[in-house]
């Protein structure tokens, strides 16, 4: 219990650090600002003959994508913490690993929610045509986000355990960008060939985007979606499968990864990293 509370406090400290240092503040604001600029230019465009504003379709989708990106930041942070010895310190302390994991969930999820607000609040001012006056909108947004985090953070932790250096994390960027491209974030997925549509529907990114659209768009907008339905049941189904797989596998993979950590493994990674610099 102490470890969970201590981990919670650790996460809060890390969040505060992340929002009080200039370098990270830039990264918190850079992407939302770029997206908002894109939204600004999309504000008068509409999707095909349907007459729906492309900007209004894109904003919830971007929120969904950003939520799914928690997976990437979880993975990156875990790899970085392993490389620099943070994880080994946690291992050397009683219940340190529990505290560490709780803190990661708190800081990654907390940072993510803050980033979503940074995008959503100005986004609502730029884009009209969203239906945010209803309490159900926020309720839907809440459960989609929660389920989305459950689906993506454990997968991120698994990926973070698999990559052994911050550098090799770069390998992950390309497929992730590919998945984003086909997941209906910037353009409705129904405009894609059917086989790509199918691949997109295997990813949590698509379902997070769909869920966010279902929360924030007026009900007529459902016409753009596959089967002209918000498919809440399917959303819950697919995200739950991801969550279940992640939550089952993550402890095993994390434990295996942590077991291998020792002073000499950290030292050898440090040497490798320093050689690259030198």
């Amino acid at each position: 219990m102490t470890a969970i509370r201590t981990g919670w406090r650790r996460g809060v400290i890390e969040l505060r650090q992340s929002f009080t240092n200039p370098g990270e503040l830039i990264s918190h604001f850079l992407w939302p600002v770029l997206m908002l600029i894109a939204l600004y230019f999309l504000r008068d465009k509409s999707f095909g003959a349907t007459g729906f504003a492309l900007g209004a379709l894109a904003l919830p989708s971007m929120l969904g994508m950003n939520a799914a990106m928690g997976m990437v930041s979880m993975s990156q942070q875990l790899t970085a913490d392993r490389e620099d010895g943070t994880l080994l310190r946690a291992k050397a302390i009683p219940n340190g690993m529990v505290g560490y994991l709780v803190s990661k969930v708190v800081s990654v999820a907390g940072g993510l929610i803050a980033d979503l607000a940074i995008l959503l609040i100005p986004g609502l001012l730029i884009i009209g045509g969203l239906s945010v006056g209803r309490p159900e909108a926020w309720l839907t947004l809440g459960w989609v986000l929660l389920l989305g985090l459950l689906a993506t953070l454990p997968i991120g932790a698994i990926l973070g355990s698999v990559f052994t250096s911050v550098r090799s994390q770069g390998l992950m960027q390309l497929p992730v960008l590919g998945l984003i491209a086909i997941s209906g974030i910037f353009y409705p997925v129904t405009a894609l060939p059917t086989w790509l549509e199918w691949i997109a529907q295997l990813t949590p990114i698509y379902w997070l985007g769909l869920g966010m659209r279902s929360a924030l768009l007026p009900s007529e907008a459902v016409a753009v979606e596959i089967g002209e339905s918000w498919r809440h049941l399917e959303t819950i189904g697919v995200l739950s499968v991801w969550a279940a797989v992640g939550l089952l596998l993550a402890p095993v993979v994390l434990r295996r990864m942590a077991r291998r950590e020792s002073g000499s493994t950290v030292a050898s990674r440090r040497e490798r990293a320093l050689r690259r610099v030198g």
Binding site: A3, T6, R9, I13, N21, D81, D84, G85, R89, I93
Partner: peptide, 23 residues
């Protein structure tokens, strides 16, 4: 442990007080 660059953003007192809580 031999440190390298872990916990760079933490302050000395803050980190020791935090790690102490586990004990």
């Amino acid at each position: 442990l031999q440190s390298w660059r872990d916990h760079g953003k933490w302050r000395v007192r803050e980190l020791l007080a935090h790690l102490g809580e586990y004990y």
